[in-house]
Amino acid sequence: MSYDFAPLLRSAIGFDRLARLVDDAVSNAPANASYPPYNIEKASDDDYHVTMALAGFGPDDVEIYLADNQLIIKGNAPRSPRAGQILHRGIATRAFERRFALADHIEVTGAELVNGLLTVAVRQITPEALKPRRIPISVGQPVSRQVPEKTTALGHAA
């Protein structure tokens, strides 16, 4: 199932990434979307943590990287050094790839693997240009209300 965002994109500029994000979420949902289990936590107004349960995985079995505004976490199935025969396998240690779409101005600040839990710290950074700013009000000086002179396409005064 796919949605047609053409009517929206005809009158909006710069939203093609949002349309692609929604389309990918709907049409490309992987069959193993529940593995490995994870939490997304909001630690503060600007800080988030993605925590994944990775029993049996070590730091060398996991890769974390950013590409095209996505946080991508891949795990390669660890080799079992055990010599015995496994009679029941209840702990999944299969390869996986999990992608998280990131908003603009997001940076990954760190990652740690402790007791089978991988935690990736993410922070939203607001650029100075996007922060609210106060415009000073001058007192005693009139604001220039002069209309700029119109020019033609060739740069001459009209």
Rank of each mutant, 00 (worst) to 15 (best):
L21R: 11
L8C: 07
R89W: 02
N39A: 14
I137L: 05
K150G: 08
R79E: 11
A19Y: 00
V114T: 10
E128I: 11
R134E: 11
L102K: 07
I106Q: 04
H49K: 15
R17E: 11
G84Y: 14
A103K: 10
G90S: 13
A157D: 03
Y38G: 04
S34T: 05
Y65E: 09
D24H: 14
S144Q: 09
N39S: 02
P127L: 06
D46H: 07
Q85V: 15
A101F: 15
S11F: 07
A55F: 10
A111N: 13
S138G: 13
I125M: 08
G116T: 09
A43C: 05
N28H: 15
E128Q: 14
G110W: 05
D24L: 11
A83Y: 06
A129H: 08
A103N: 10
E41S: 10
P132F: 00
H105V: 03
I64R: 12
V147C: 01
R10F: 02
G56D: 02
F15C: 12
D46R: 01
D16H: 08
F100H: 09
D46T: 15
I40Y: 03
K74W: 00
R123S: 11
F5M: 04
D16M: 03
R82K: 04
S34L: 05
L9R: 03
V62S: 00
V50D: 10
L54E: 01
N76C: 07
P59Q: 07
P81N: 14
A6E: 10
N28W: 07
N76M: 10
L71D: 09
A92P: 02
H105K: 06
T152V: 06
D60V: 07
K74C: 13
A129K: 06
L18Y: 12
P59R: 01
A25F: 14
T151E: 11
H49G: 03
S27E: 06
G84N: 09
R79W: 06
